[in-house]
Amino acid sequence: KALVVSPAGSAQVLSALDQATQRGVPVILVDTDAPFDKKVTYIGTDNRKGGQLAAKGLAEAIGGKGEVALIHGVSGNESQDARAQGFLDAVASDYPGIKVVAKQPGNSERALGLTVMENLLTAHPDIKGVFATNDQMALGAMEALEARSLRGKVEIIGFDATKEAVQATVDGRLAGSVAQSPRMMGQRGVEAALAALKGQPVEKRIDTGTELVTAANAAKYLK
Rank of each mutant, 00 (worst) to 15 (best):
L3C: 04
V4I: 13
S10N: 09
V13K: 13
V13S: 12
L14D: 00
L17S: 01
L17K: 02
L17P: 05
Q19A: 15
A20D: 08
T21D: 02
Q22R: 15
V25N: 09
V25A: 06
P26E: 07
I28V: 14
L29H: 09
D33L: 01
A34I: 01
F36G: 02
V40A: 01
V40Q: 14
Y42N: 08
Y42L: 07
Y42S: 01
G44P: 10
T45M: 13
R48A: 14
G50K: 13
G50N: 05
A55N: 06
K56F: 01
K56S: 11
A59I: 03
E60V: 07
A61S: 10
I62V: 08
G63M: 07
E67Q: 15
V68G: 03
L70T: 00
H72L: 09
G73M: 05
G73H: 04
V74P: 11
S75Y: 10
G76K: 12
N77E: 07
N77M: 08
D81H: 01
A82Q: 13
A84N: 06
A84M: 12
L88K: 15
L88V: 03
D89H: 04
V91H: 04
S93V: 02
D94E: 14
D94I: 02
P96D: 06
G97M: 02
G97I: 00
A102R: 10
A102C: 10
S108W: 10
S108T: 09
A111K: 12
L114R: 15
T115A: 15
T115W: 05
V116T: 15
N119W: 00
L121R: 08
A123W: 04
H124C: 08
P125H: 05
V130W: 01
F131M: 14
A132L: 06
T133A: 07
T133R: 06
Q136N: 15
A138Y: 07
G140M: 02
L145V: 09
E146N: 11
R148H: 13
L150R: 11
L150W: 06
R151G: 14
R151L: 11
R151C: 10
E155N: 11
I157K: 04
G158H: 13
G158K: 15
F159Q: 08
D160Y: 02
A161P: 04
A165D: 02
Q167N: 06
A168Q: 05
T169D: 11
V170T: 11
R173T: 06
G176E: 09
S177W: 12
S177R: 12
V178D: 11
V178E: 04
R183F: 14
M184I: 13
M185L: 08
G186V: 06
G189V: 01
V190M: 12
A193T: 09
L194T: 03
A195I: 01
A195K: 15
K198F: 04
K198Y: 01
Q200D: 13
Q200T: 08
V202Q: 03
V202N: 06
E203R: 15
E203V: 11
E203Q: 15
K204D: 10
K204Q: 14
I206R: 08
T208R: 09
G209M: 03
T210C: 03
L212P: 05
L212S: 02
L212V: 06
T214R: 04
A215G: 13
A215P: 02
A216M: 04
N217E: 05
A219R: 13
